[in-house]
Computed example of a mutant assay.
Amino acid sequence: MARSLRVRRGRARLRAVALIGIDGSGKTTQAHRLAEALTAAGHPATYHRNAGGRRWLGRVAQRLGRPDPQRLIGRDGLLAVESVLRWLAIALALLSCLVTGRTAVMDRYAACQYASIRAHGGQRWERLARAGYRVFPAPRVTILLAVDPAEAYRRIERRGTDHESMRWLTAAATAYRTLPEYAGFVVVDANGSPEEVSRRIRAHLTEWFPGEPPAATDSAPPPAGRDGPVAAQARP
């Protein structure tokens, strides 16, 4: 059962918070909103997009007559490029946070790469990725935006800038739930409107948004996937 972070005492600085989840879960929208809300609440924050270049590679692949990046550079090539680009993005974001003293609101983090590797079936790459990403500290809070793959698919189709298959979205959702870090994620139901999801996120961050009502203990049901519903968990 998800529990609010209100149980934490004191007002420790929020150095970094990461929003993760499958494509179409609303990571970018919510990360921008959270950075703005934290700044307005007196905790200066900066948005950081830690992309792995998959969308860019997809556009390149289509221009070259290939349906997707994997058909262009192969699965191993895609995972290698994605892992390196995301590593560099996270390193720059953390460096910026260290220099400016602002909270880093991360749109994707290391767990996104581990999930991508699992969803692609490249498990042997995960050990290498974890060795490389081990240098990064864990965010103070990692929020998994749990959305039904069918809803994520509809959102992606509406935005019209890229395309993902239901098979991939379902595999990615399952991959997040099987990560060893899953028990430490704050799972937030991301199936509602952006406003509803923003309120749910802030309700789990009452240490930094003291005016927000605390999150209900059963407010974050994860989406059903091939393995069925999984009980939501949160960092104690």
Rank of each mutant, 00 (worst) to 15 (best):
residue 6 R to A: 14
residue 236 P to H: 14
residue 139 P to R: 03
residue 76 D to F: 09
residue 86 R to G: 01
residue 47 Y to G: 03
residue 177 R to T: 09
residue 97 C to L: 08
residue 68 D to N: 15
residue 13 R to G: 11
residue 87 W to P: 03
residue 113 Q to S: 15
residue 84 V to N: 05
residue 24 G to Q: 01
residue 183 A to Y: 05
residue 91 A to M: 08
residue 29 T to V: 02
residue 191 N to F: 02
residue 24 G to R: 02
residue 19 L to D: 02
residue 78 L to H: 14
residue 10 G to I: 06
residue 166 M to L: 14
residue 11 R to Q: 08
residue 138 A to M: 09
residue 67 P to R: 11
residue 2 A to Q: 07
residue 106 M to G: 02
residue 33 R to I: 01
residue 36 E to C: 07
residue 145 L to S: 02
residue 233 Q to R: 13
residue 106 M to L: 15
residue 37 A to S: 14
residue 6 R to H: 10
residue 153 Y to H: 05
residue 142 T to C: 01
residue 215 A to G: 05
residue 157 E to G: 01
residue 132 G to L: 05
residue 119 A to I: 00
residue 143 I to W: 05
residue 12 A to Q: 12
residue 38 L to E: 11
residue 144 L to E: 00
residue 67 P to E: 05
residue 97 C to M: 15
residue 66 R to N: 08
residue 157 E to N: 07
residue 162 D to I: 08
residue 190 A to R: 11
residue 218 D to W: 13
residue 5 L to K: 13
residue 184 G to M: 06
residue 196 E to K: 12
residue 156 I to E: 00
residue 46 T to Q: 14
residue 196 E to R: 14
residue 204 H to W: 04
residue 112 C to W: 05
residue 9 R to D: 04
residue 117 I to V: 14
residue 183 A to Q: 13
residue 223 P to D: 03
residue 187 V to Y: 04
residue 33 R to A: 08
residue 131 A to W: 08
residue 158 R to L: 00
residue 189 D to I: 07
residue 122 G to V: 01
residue 129 A to T: 01
residue 210 P to N: 04
residue 31 A to R: 11
residue 210 P to S: 04
residue 163 H to Y: 14
residue 135 V to Q: 08
residue 233 Q to I: 06
residue 157 E to I: 01
residue 182 Y to S: 12
residue 71 R to T: 13
residue 65 G to V: 10
residue 174 T to I: 02
residue 126 E to S: 08
residue 17 V to Q: 08
residue 207 E to W: 07
residue 125 W to M: 10
residue 101 G to F: 03
residue 180 P to S: 06
residue 20 I to K: 13
residue 48 H to E: 03
residue 34 L to V: 07
residue 4 S to C: 04
